[in-house]
Design a binder for these strands. Structure first.
Lengths: 348, 348
DNA sequence: CGCGATTGTTTACACGTGTAAAAAAACTGG
DNA sequence: CCAGTTTTTTTACACGTGTAAACAATCGCG
């Protein structure tokens, strides 16, 4: 059994129990070095003996800054977004900010609600991976008057004044993959992602541009009536299973807009036994992805892909946001694009 | 350009702009039906024309209940936990609670910090997927005096008074898989997960118990010096790659403690070309998992597994927590175990 | 020891909302 | 239109902390 410590609810009680004035304690909790070392030591010694958790809500009531940073992602069920989230959290930990995460649940309404919640919680700023085409620009514009916003990964269809963007340079990353694929085999066709956000548009455009610059004709894989969906694996599997069943694309090179689609496509290819084994002649089918999903290397064959610099994107987004929170920068808008690194694996 | 609405910062301003007293507005925001219908309509009409977000922090300052429920998971980078999180969020949405998620980052210290943060934010209660063996029982016990706690998925090494638990009935789920495997082929050996939490212990025990009850000798796959790690795929891959390289387990049945380990093991098997193709004689190697990870069905071969009732676990955990928050139940401790459903796929 | 500089205390008010009590106003049914 | 009921307004205080100002105590230094 644990010796239960004396429970202290308010700072006032604490100041009495410890023999120090409340305002001094208030200063101590905001910055230990703001009080005399001997006082600081005295406070910490007594603090270790009692159970006091200062009231965050009351704390933030009067400060202009709440120390809270909101992060909004479309889904928790996507390891790309959770990786981004962890990168941001880890960076925030170092700078003393607390992260409040909200999922928009893939819906514009959820996104607007998440923004409103951050506003009502007096967040100092927000890093948002927006839904994209669906996003309510108005909600962002209004929120922008309350706190700075940095978009990460993807950006809204229309620009929002005074917001920054950090993402991957899709032109560079896609070009790198296309380049590699053309150098080592047949030029790729492109299996786009459902038109959910700016990446969907940019990557398809980057593919077409790179192909033309190589003097090749871009070819887009028909996705039939597949409707918008965040279930990328099912999407990739459904589309390619249909094609393979009709003997289409069975010995070509396919570049998927992201790894989750590639995982679905690879599954379809395996069902049709299109990947051959060591020692057998190469069937010609190659499938590449984009993002370096954590499980891509465990697929069989492992997915060739472009690894986004998620760590860098998270750090940079936080850095830009904090600059704005501190009022160190009032620019209209900053865009930071990070390069992705080609990861050559077995699938190509 | 959007017509920018009149911005209203406080409820007092709002009450003046709308011609209604502030206390009445306060009542309106807590329960629309607490004011006369004509008043309610009048408020809503004016509300639509202005930009007012009520201050969550000030709101929660005086209420005994904050409407906040904390969820703590070990990692965001695990689709099992994010599925659980989404289940809880979706259930919370329906009951009007707001979810605050914290990751413990796989460390006892992070877990204690997360609990402290929830306490300082005056959360009404917490649903915690604990680290397990590492967890600081003391932090839970102290927090338990502030708000009710329900553990989900796994439970701390020592019981904590007045907390509930909702999880999967490992004895049932593991027995179902073992049963199926024995019925359809060779009895399985067990590849445990690193001893991180109660599930690690329970599943291994459930395996051994079921095997003995079938009159069979349990066999545990040696994991060598592999140290504790949440990187389950790498763990499963590393352990099995080592065995396969020495021609061990190459034509046996292996039950993995979870799907992420199975995914790693399957990758290792594929590298060694141990799974044969349709038409070829069966090699004998079978690998099963547990949890029904979202990507399990996209592996090749797709993973035979036991699907946890994550939706049910999330709902039930929230229900128990709300009961306690409302003071409807003061029991010492309740344990709810949900059954898992056998998913037979290609890997066995 | 006495000076100015630093650090601490006291006091008082602020933040934006909840809430209780009493008074006023608006409804309801007849 | 009245009495009775319900709803709203008014008034006042509460929550736990931040913060400013004036003052008191302590420190470092010569």
């Amino acid at each position: 059994m644990v010796k239960s410590k004396q429970k202290i609810a308010t700072m006032k009680e604490l100041s009495e129990a410890i023999g120090i004035s409340r305002p001094t304690l208030s200063r101590f909790f905001q910055d230990q070095s703001a009080v005399r070392p001997s006082t600081s030591r005295k406070i910490r010694e007594r603090l270790a003996e009692v159970d006091y958790v200062y009231n965050f809500i009351a704390t933030r009531q009067n400060r202009k800054l709440s120390g809270l940073i909101g992060v909004i992602i479309p889904h928790y069920n996507d390891l790309f977004f959770t990786s981004l989230l962890e990168a941001i959290e880890s960076a925030a930990r170092k700078t003393g900010y607390t992260v409040i995460t909200q999922s928009s649940d893939g819906k514009a309404k959820g996104e607007a609600q998440a923004v409103a919640r951050l506003r009502s919680m007096s967040a100092d700023g927000a890093i948002i991976a927006p839904l994209g085409l669906d996003s309510s620009i108005e909600a962002f514009q209004i929120a922008r008057e309350d706190f700075p916003i940095v978009f990460a990964d993807s950006r809204p269809a229309e620009p929002v004044d005074g917001t920054d963007f950090v993402g991957t340079d899709n032109a560079q990353s896609i070009a790198a993959v296309v380049d590699y694929l053309c150098r080592t085999g047949e030029p790729p066709a492109f299996l786009g992602m459902p038109p959910l956000n700016s990446n969907a548009v940019e990557r398809e455009r980057a593919y077409a541009g790179k192909m033309r610059s190589l003097g090749l004709e871009p070819r887009i894989v028909a996705t039939g009536g597949a409707r918008e969906s965040w279930q990328f694996e099912a999407f990739g599997h459904g589309v390619m299973n249909d094609h393979f069943s009709h003997q289409r694309y069975t010995s070509e090179t396919i570049l998927c807009a992201n790894d989750r689609i590639a995982i679905g496509a690879i599954r379809a290819a395996n069902e049709h036994e299109l990947f051959l084994r060591r020692g057998e002649p190469h069937s010609g089918l190659r499938i590449a992805g984009h993002d370096d999903h954590p499980l891509s290397q465990y697929m069989y064959p492992a997915v060739t892909t472009a690894a986004q610099d998620i760590e860098g994107i998270g750090q940079e987004a936080l850095r830009l946001l904090i600059e704005r929170i501190r009022g160190e920068r009032m620019d209209d808008s900053v865009t930071v694009l990070r390069e992705a690194a080609l990861k050559i694996r077995e699938s190509t």
